[in-house]
Write a protein that binds this DNA or RNA. Sequence first.
DNA 1: TCAATACGGCACGTGCCGTGCAGTAGGGTG
DNA 2: CACCCTACTGCACGGCACGTGCCGTATTGA
Lengths: 196, 196
Amino acid sequence: MTDQRAARAAGRTETIMRTALDLAREAGYAKLSIEAVAARAGVSKHTIYRRWPSRGLLFLDAVLSLNAAGLDHPDTGDIVADLREVMTRAADLLGRPPWGPLYRDLIGEAQHDPDVADALNQRFIQPQTADTLARLQTAKDQGQIAPDFDLHLAMEVLSGPLYFRLLITGEPVTNDYIDRVLRAAFTGMAPRPGPT
Amino acid sequence: MTDQRAARAAGRTETIMRTALDLAREAGYAKLSIEAVAARAGVSKHTIYRRWPSRGLLFLDAVLSLNAAGLDHPDTGDIVADLREVMTRAADLLGRPPWGPLYRDLIGEAQHDPDVADALNQRFIQPQTADTLARLQTAKDQGQIAPDFDLHLAMEVLSGPLYFRLLITGEPVTNDYIDRVLRAAFTGMAPRPGPT
DNA sequence: TCAATACGGCACGTGCCGTGCAGTAGGGTG
DNA sequence: CACCCTACTGCACGGCACGTGCCGTATTGA
C-alpha cells in the first residue's frame, strides 16, 4: 500500500498549513515567510515548495481550510431570515478576529497575484455565489422576489456593502448593519408613494 | 528665498512619484522596489526615504496624485442621472487600465498595512463619501429619496457592488451594470404589489 | 567667508528568496 | 532478505531588496 506514504504526506501538508495560519495570526501575513513556516513546522523548505508554488497559494489553502464547516444557506421559507442567517455567520467568521484579518490579507494578496485571485474565485467565491443564487431562485419561485430581478445582481447588492466595510472603510459588520442592508436591498431607497 | 530649495524638493518629489507610477504600470506593484524607483529616477535611496516611510505610502501618494481632476458630483436635479455620471467616471478611471490595476494594488496593500488603509480612508474615501452624502441629502430634501433612508447606507449600497466586482470577482464594471445597480438600489428587489 | 541643508555615491549587515546537491529514512518490490 | 525509490532533511549558494550609515559635494542663505 502506498497509503502509508500518502498519509504521511497529507499529515505534513496539514502541519504546514496550520503552522502558516499560526504565524500569520501572530505576526500578520506581511511577516509570513516560507523560511519561518519551514523552521517552525520542523520541515525543509523543499517540502513546502514541493506542495505550493508561492507563499500566496499556501496562504490561500491555509485560510480556506478554515471553511470546512461551510456557509450553506438554510431554507426556512423566509428568504430574508435565511439570508440574514448566512450573512451573520459569514460576518462572524470572516469579519472578526481571529480569521477576519487573515481573510482581508488573502483578498489583499489576490489584488496583485492573479493566481491567488483565480483560485479564490473558483474555490470560494463561486461556490458560495452558486449556493446563494440557488436559494434566491427558490425565493423568486415563491414570489418573495420580483420576477424580473436579476439574482446575480441581487447577490452583489447584498454582498457588496459587507465587503465594502471589510475592505475599504474598516467599519464593523454588525448584525444591525446586516438588517439594514437587507431592508435596503428589498425595499429600495426610492420614496414609496404607494398605499401600504 | 528658501523658495528655491522648496521648489527643487517639490520637483524631486514629483519625479519620484511619476517614476513609481511608471514602474508600477510596467511591471506591477509587486515588482515595485525603492531601489528600482531610485535608480530610474536618478535619485538616491535617502531622498526617497526622507519623504516616505514605506513603499506603500509612496505608492499611495503616487496613485492619489492621479485624482487631481477629482470626482465631484454634478447637480442637475436628477439624482439618478448624477449618480450614474459619477459612478461612470469613477469606473472609467479606477476600474480600467492603466489605473485600475494600480488602484486595486493600492487597496490590496491597505489590507495588510494599516498606515496605508488609514491614509487611503482619510485622503480619498472619506472626502469622496462626504461629497456623495451631500448630493444624496439634496436629493432627499427634494423628495427623490425616501425620508427615512439612511444616506450613509445608500452610499454603501451603491459603492459596494462596484468594489465587489473590482476586487472580488474581477468582472468588469460596465455602464449597463451601473444602470442596473442604480435601479436595484432605488426600487429594491421585493415584488411590487402596488398599482403603477 | 562660512555654516546649513539636501543630495549622490558607496557600502554594509540582514532577511528572505528559489534552487542545487549530498545524505538518509521509510515503505514497496523482486 | 536485499534492493530500489520516493520523499525528506540539512546545508549551501547567488541574488535581490531592505533600511541605515558615512563621506564628499553642491547649492543656499547668513
